[in-house]
Write a protein that binds this DNA or RNA. Structure first.
Lengths: 409, 409
DNA sequence: AAACTTTATTTATATTTTTATAAAGTTTTA
DNA sequence: TAAAACTTTATAAAAATATAAATAAAGTTT
């Protein structure tokens, strides 16, 4: 018990170092000393212990900045693993990665309908547990499970109010109980934002807004370098702000919501209506196709130059741009990232969005914000799920993992 | 030099304690130990030193929570003073307060036109310096100067891009050079928000939006318990978001801005137009009155039941409500506070604002946000200016003050 | 080559925390 | 109802920890 306690308190700094080295590639003792405001001997001691425990490795010398070259340290990729899970309305992805976010087992993809599916949670948990068993990785080595999912989510309690019902109980506690691994959940758009800020195009920016263009329109907000969720966790509801007085009716019951005017689902429906009216287009439509199939087809067609598809997307883009103008006025972000499924056609959307920004933004504000397109693409949510685990790493007591890793050396 | 260095590093904790005791009324060693994650002996030592130095006094025993009663400590009110300055477009207020925010010298109010006035900075600085001299307070005892002012402000550089030109140089450095006292500036709306969160109706809330209803419509944002300013310091530009497609032309060059539809200045102009058209009202208008006089008259008349004034304010309130609906969707704040000049008629504004929220907000979001009216009123900006100084207290090296206070004991 | 920088290590010093003890309450229970 | 048992807070000593200073090492710049 004595040694246990000592470990917990004393490993605080070590966990902070592991976390930092996960996010940065490599750092020197001097750099870490500066960063954490600890003396170099303290850092050196912690680093040495971490090397003995198998968490950290030397990583060569960095170029001199006018003096002795610093010896860099990196995290040892296979010291721990992270289980990343990404859900959308219909499909689930599971992927075990190492501390460099590289896959250490094949990704598993399977159908998982979230809407009106009371078994979804049990199915997901069973799949996760089975995936881990198959991966051959020791549960002790898994730093945590991170799950991204659509819906209104209470991050601290681990509850999703929209999907994956656990009788109002904590989803994360349920999964932790079944798997024995610390679990974190968050909204898909939030995780995409996290991925973009930590490993994507908005790397190390402090104020980042990430638009998740999909069947809906999500917003993940990074404020002050951290995920922002608002007072009750519902911040970033960009898709239901009142954009126009006379727009079409939205699922939420209001009129003129962005989502009811510019989401991929709505664009698909408009396309179907257009085809029925005989619009000239390369798009085909069979009566038994569902709208989502059409959505993907539109993205494809637009990228191939189909005029009708481009017109529909431009229209949507302009409305998105108007919403972004509002967002810029309120948040004054450094960066807005277009991400999610719709990022495929970001080049087409860019022009009408910029046009709307010019019309609706005070120049002083629009000049301060850079509009970028995600490079992570479909991987963003999975990376974000992994990041979520490591974001919480210094808070979670991973002395357990530390001990087992020591034994493994 | 040895003792000097020791003081600087070691006084970090002491400065943090002073800051905390400024914001909280009284705290125990145990409480501070918990808060700062320092051992009780460390806190006790720091507290004892602070008492010897004359910064902290014992403040009686708090009720027991099931054990020995904690001895509480408070900041000694006259250990330091803060100089608070509040500017609006036309008038300046200067007020020296102690660490309980109580006045220690009479408030000075004087005309200071900010617009097109190259002398404004020199005048202000001279007034500040003269005020301090007259107050009889030793400059060594003044923890800092905090100034709230309208305009686009770069807080870190201390520059106001709109008013108080110092040839593009730092305002704060200029004032520091002339007075010899650390100086901080911030936007008036931001300081009002700070005041509301620290000593006002939104006390200790983490996510607070404060609407500064005045000649314009300002927004001060508290995010994650701290003032939020955005990437380039321009966050919170609520007054220029595109609210309607066909609204009247705004100063900013766009159409349909909130400010062009619902600010007190616009309401006054509408009132004048109405009177000229012969509307029945108790309001009087002389051709040589300027709109701002009318603005105050409208608030008065509305509170006295004048139908026309109430109608005009209700109309403005509804538009403000629509903007707040957008703000709630994006920020999901715990609290929205109506503050500034217009808070006088907040009761009249409340109804149309709530009506707009019901129309434009998803219920899940509007229920999570409380709409409140400021109780600080006209003092808010001054209190915020004082708070600004103490917010930065732990960062500024106040060992100097600490030493002089010691000598004074 | 000399002077300066930056980084790393060692040792002596200073600081902080833990542990033990006491003090001052409240709650439980006999 | 009073004593026993438990809580919370405070203090003083010993033990653990972190830091500063000195020194060395490895570069760059003058």
């Amino acid at each position: 018990m004595e040694a246990e306690n000592k470990g917990v308190k004393g490993s605080q700094l070590k966990n902070m170092i592991i976390k930092k080295l996960y996010f940065n590639k490599a750092m020197s003792c001097a750099g870490l000393s500066e960063l954490f405001d600890k003396s170099i001997p303290s850092i050196a001691k912690a680093i040495n212990e971490l090397m003995h425990e198998g968490f950290v490795v030397e990583d060569g010398y960095a170029p001199s900045s006018g003096g002795r070259r610093p010896l860099m340290y990196s995290v040892k990729a296979n010291a721990m693993y992270i289980l990343a899970v990404a859900l959308d309305q219909l499909t689930a992805r599971i992927q075990l990665v190492d501390l460099l976010n590289n896959p250490v087992a094949e990704m598993r993809t399977f159908e998982l309908k979230l809407h009106n599916n009371p078994d979804s949670l049990a199915t997901l948990t069973a799949q996760i547990d089975d995936y881990i068993k198959n991966s051959g990785a020791s549960k002790d080595k898994i730093a945590g499970i991170g799950i991204g999912m659509p819906g209104f989510i209470n991050v601290t309690e681990g509850i999703n109010y929209t999907y994956l019902d656990a009788n109002g109980q904590s989803l994360t506690k349920y999964i932790e109980a079944k798997t024995g691994i610390v679990t974190y959940i968050d909204n898909d758009s939030s995780l995409i934002a996290l991925a973009e800020q930590k490993f994507g195009i908005a790397k190390s920016q402090q104020e980042v807004m990430v638009i998740n263009l999909g069947w809906g329109i999500g917003l993940g907000m990074i404020v002050n370098g951290k995920l922002f969720r608002g007072h009750t966790g519902f911040a970033g509801e960009l898709s239901h702000i009142p954009l126009s007085e006379d727009g079409s009716l939205c699922d939420c019951g209001k009129r003129g919501c962005l989502e009811a005017e510019a989401s991929l689902l709505v664009v698909a429906q408009k396309a179907i209506a257009g085809i029925k009216q005989g619009r000239v287009t390369s798009l085909k439509y069979n009566e038994n196709d569902h709208s989502k199939l059409m959505g993907d087809a539109i993205l494809e067609a637009a990228n191939n130059g189909d005029q009708f598809a481009i017109e529909l997307l431009s229209d949507a883009g302009y409305k998105i741009g108007k919403a972004l103008a509002i967002l810029i006025h309120i948040m004054n972000p450094a960066t807005i990232v277009l991400s999610g499924r719709g990022a495929r056609v970001a080049k087409i959307l860019m022009a009408p969005i910029q046009q709307a920004l010019h019309k609706y933004c005070i120049p002083r504000l629009s000049t301060g914000t850079e509009l970028l397109v995600s490079e992570l693409g479909f991987d963003a949510e999975l990376i974000g799920a992994a990041v979520l685990v490591m974001e919480n790493f210094d808070k979670s007591v991973k002395a357990k993992v530390a001990k087992s890793a020591k034994a493994a050396v």
